[in-house]
Computed example of a mutant assay.
Amino acid sequence: MSRFLNDIEGHLLLAATREEGRTAAERFTAPLGWLTDAQRAEVERRFEAEYLTLARSSWQRTAARAGRLRDEYEAAYRGLRRRLLAGWLLGGAVALSVVVVLCPAR
């Protein structure tokens, strides 16, 4: 189910980015009144394609960075868990030692 939702989210993100690219392309060509309709359509198509390529590249860099951060945080978490366990074990050993020293066997 999670994979399905991720796929839907990806398609929605791609559709939104395509629309942003089309809108940006139209804004870009709007002041270029000397373009013919065919030229304007070609410039807009290329602009949109480049916009999508740049967005995809940005998403890939972001995903790679997120993966590296996840690995770093997981490593830090494992280290903290090990230290906490070591602290509990040391505290338990100290407490047991104090009990043994203060309450000798009869």
Rank of each mutant, 00 (worst) to 15 (best):
G92L: 10
D37A: 07
L102I: 06
L52H: 01
E19F: 05
W34H: 13
C103L: 15
A38H: 13
P104M: 05
R82T: 05
E19P: 00
L52G: 00
S57P: 01
R40H: 11
P104I: 11
E74H: 05
A66T: 06
L54E: 15
D37N: 11
L85W: 11
A49R: 13
I8W: 12
A15V: 06
L89W: 03
D37H: 05
I8Q: 13
S2R: 13
V100S: 07
A41Q: 14
I8V: 10
G87C: 06
L69A: 08
G10T: 15
L84S: 10
L14M: 09
Y51S: 00
R3N: 15
L80S: 15
C103E: 13
R27F: 00
R22A: 00
L90T: 11
Y77L: 12
C103F: 12
A66V: 07
A15H: 03
R82N: 03
L14S: 14
A63E: 14
H11C: 07
L35W: 02
Y77T: 10
Y51T: 00
T17D: 01
R3T: 10
A76D: 08
G21Y: 00
S57L: 04
G79V: 03
A76H: 12
D7M: 12
R81W: 04
R65C: 02
A15R: 15
R70I: 02
T36G: 12
A76I: 12
Q60W: 03
A55E: 06
R82S: 04
T23W: 00
Y51K: 01
Y73E: 14
G87P: 03
S58A: 09
S2G: 15
E20M: 00
R46K: 10
L89I: 04
E72R: 12
A55G: 00
F28C: 00
R22D: 00
A75R: 05
T23K: 01
V43N: 02
E20K: 01
A38T: 10
R18F: 04
R61G: 04
R81D: 10
E26H: 07
G92R: 08
W88T: 13
R83Q: 09
R45A: 09
R56L: 06
Y77A: 14
R22E: 01
E26V: 05
E26Y: 06
R61Q: 11
A95R: 04
L80T: 08
R70S: 11
F28H: 15
R83L: 04
R83A: 04
